Amino acid sequence: MTTEIQEPDQARLEQTLGQLVVDMGAAMNGALVLIGVDLGLWRALDESGPTTSEQLATRTGLRERYLREWLSAQVASGYLTYEPDNDTFTLSPEHAMALAREDSPVYLAGGLHLISSVYKDRLRITERIRNGEGFGWHEHDPELFVGTEQFFRPGYRANLVDVWLPTLDGVVDKLRAGATVADIGCGHGVSTTLLAQAFPQSTIRGFDYHDGSIARARELAAEEGVDNATFEVASATDFPGSDYDLICYFDCLHDMGDPVGALRYARGALADDGTVMLVEPFARDSLPENLNPVGRMYYAASTVLCTPSSLDQPVALGLGAQAGERRLADVAAEAGFGTFRRATETPFNLVLEARP
């Protein structure tokens, strides 16, 4: 049987090649964005206003020839504007919020460390996929842990205390009075520390199976002067304690091999009137609904980070970063939760509430 080979449609071919060129340029420039962060270029541009490459070289002490090429690449990427009449480059306030101002709620430049780590691990991940094996979170290049912290921190700072928690039934009052909280899969403890700072009467316990992340979480909490947060190495199905008023999972349940078992264990560790706060990557319930820039990013991350992590663990459910609310509700119901609802959402996250 001979399969007829169809001739490509020229317009669609050109569109395909155009998309690949755009993607290749973005992949290359991601490294340049991080170089700009490391060299203080974004901050210098934010502080200086319109500047020439010579002025930026004087300001930073860097070689002008490198800077002109870097600046030109950022103009081509749409991150800077260029005025040919006076040969100046300008970083707009909007781009500064995303690229230069680390305390901005929409600072995203640091998250490119996460993407950089994927390239470092690509060959090893490829072999695991070839063999149908998982790839543990702990096996990744350490840059992944830095990138994860820096990608999620701005959103947590902007939303966790003032936006997300008030949407949970009665939780803020408990935290103000003094509650016991478990932050499961806490990583570098950004969420744990934010909770501890906002609610000094409460006791916040961060747990993660990765000992390197727990060590870093302790360092960051100490830098912030937090004394009501503790960090321990423990998994989602063996963390100590009981009668928790609040158990949180920040962008981690889908990475677990046995999310049903994790939530079932949490249900047993909750107080009778306790709450589970589940923060997951934003997703609708079907593939066609997720075919957008955010879904594209999360499906890619799920392929090389989230799903391999799950497949490396017992049960290996492989929930994926784009599970969606309906699938997560099924997981919670199977774990024994009687109440499950979407409390709120952002362009990047679903915030879900589960109760016994």
Rank of each mutant, 00 (worst) to 15 (best):
G147P: 08
G147A: 01
G147S: 00
T148G: 04
E149Y: 01
E149N: 10
F151I: 13
F152D: 09
F152P: 03
F152K: 03
R153W: 05
R153V: 07
R153C: 08
P154A: 12
P154E: 12
G155Q: 11
G155E: 10
G155I: 03
R157W: 09
A158F: 04
N159F: 02
N159M: 06
N159D: 12
N159E: 11
L160W: 05
L160V: 09
L160F: 05
V161F: 02
D162A: 15
V163S: 15
W164V: 06
W164D: 02
W164A: 01
P166F: 05
P166Q: 13
P166W: 03
T167F: 02
L168S: 03
D169N: 14
D169P: 02
D169M: 01
G170S: 12
V171S: 06
V171C: 04
V172Y: 08
K174S: 10
L175T: 10
R176H: 15
R176L: 15
R176D: 14
A177M: 11
A177P: 03
G178K: 13
G178A: 13
T180R: 12
V181P: 00
V181I: 10
A182H: 02
I184K: 00
I184D: 00
I184P: 02
I184E: 04
G187T: 02
G187D: 07
G187R: 04
H188Q: 12
H188D: 07
G189M: 05
T192I: 02
T192K: 12
L194F: 06
L195N: 01
